[in-house]
Amino acid sequence: MNKKLPITCPSCNSELKVQSLHCDECETTINGFYNLPLLLKLEQNEQDFIISFMQCSGSLKVMAQKLKLSYPTVRNMLDELIEKINNLQNK
């Protein structure tokens, strides 16, 4: 099952932090408080969009062909994502 990484608290909607990391090989567990990396704060579809964009060498034209969407639609999606990332960085 592909589990979704929760990024906000289901109780109060605040941003979650990483408290524990675990190694499956040697069963080591690290405890502490770590902030989630910026990319992990994005929704799964937004992360997929960024990966696809990189795989298309940052070409919106290729991206539009791949997603079967028009160029301005893909450009608008990218601009929305840029705005969201800027907001997250400025938090």
């Binding site: 969407l69 301005p72 639609t73």
Partner: peptide, 11 residues
């Protein structure tokens, strides 16, 4: 339809 078609094709 502009979600799917724009640019030179639509022109």
């Amino acid at each position: 339809p502009f979600k799917y078609i724009a640019g030179i094709k639509s022109l």
